[in-house]
């Protein structure tokens, strides 16, 4: 076997780069995952800083890209949250860019995909879930509980529907984080497995190599779509909390 000792799952291994093990329970080592998060944030900040530095009335290529990304997110926020969504634009934009750059940088050879770890995604999703719930309660007080009883429900269905809605609400952070996690893991495992075929098949390896090219293109699309889905679902949850459906 050509790929001896290299599991397709090796790419997801977290390795501490600067060991900071404070105690048995607390380990805040700077890992490869954290390194790529830092790099992503730096890349986002620097590229937007330099792209929009000139503030040209007729934008160059870099500024055009920055502006169209801005417009994509701005449209998404306006269409899905409504007028009040403007306040949440910085948050949604940061979230979208963080996940998007994380997904795309994961496709660089030798890099680490931090969005392929449930710990990262679930933290993001749980923070959004808590924030949205607190926002809804702050906005509507007790009326927030109306979210769990859809308008126009017959009274005899309420005892069944309320637990269902509650469970569906509680499962939001899970579905949000698992969706991104699963897409990233599956894509990267698939790439590694097929890359193994390229090596072990020798000359015939050209066939999986062509497939690999296609899958890489597909993964680029998935990276964008999943970041978009994450952001748009956050918008929809915010809308629910603000207007209760």
């Amino acid at each position: 076997m050509a790929a001896e000792g290299h599991s397709p799952l090796d790419q997801f291994r977290i390795e501490p780069l600067i060991s900071l093990r404070l105690s048995e329970m607390l380990d805040i080592s700077y890992t490869n995952s954290a390194l790529w998060m830092t790099l992503s944030v730096l890349a986002i900040c620097l590229s937007f800083f330099f792209a929009t530095r000139k503030r040209a009335l007729v934008p160059g290529y870099a500024q055009l890209i920055a502006e169209s990304v801005y417009k994509t997110v701005a449209d998404m926020v306006r269409d899905n949250i409504g007028k009040e969504g403007k306040r949440f634009f910085p948050f949604i934009f940061s979230l979208f860019m963080f996940i998007l750059v994380g997904n795309i940088s994961g496709l660089l050879p030798g890099s680490f995909t931090f969005t392929s770890h449930l710990a990262v995604n679930f933290f993001l999703a749980a923070a959004i879930f808590l924030g949205v719930t607190l926002l809804g309660i702050a906005r509507h007080g007790q009326g927030f509980l109306r979210l769990f009883l859809p308008h126009g429900t017959p009274w005899f269905l309420a005892p069944l529907l309320v637990p269902i809605e509650l469970l569906s609400y509680l499962s939001r952070p899970v579905s949000l984080s698992v969706r991104l996690f699963a897409n990233m893991v599956v894509g990267h495992v698939l790439l590694k497995v097929i890359a193994g075929f390229v090596v072990s098949l020798g000359v015939l390896g050209i066939v999986p190599f062509v497939g690999l090219l296609a899958i890489t293109a597909l993964e680029l699309l998935v990276a964008f779509i999943q970041a978009y889905v994450f952001a748009i679902l956050t918008c929809i949850y915010l809308h629910d909390a603000l207007y209760l459906h």
């Binding site: 269409d79 007028k83 469970l167 899970v174 579905s175 779509i225 889905v229 748009i232």
Partner: peptide, 29 residues
Amino acid sequence: GSTPPPRAPASPPLGGLRLTADFLSPIVV
């Protein structure tokens, strides 16, 4: 898009992408 929508649009392009996770996650939870 130019007229403000009274309710959030369902964003149907994502329909298929959302279905699996939305079906499975309440069961897991």
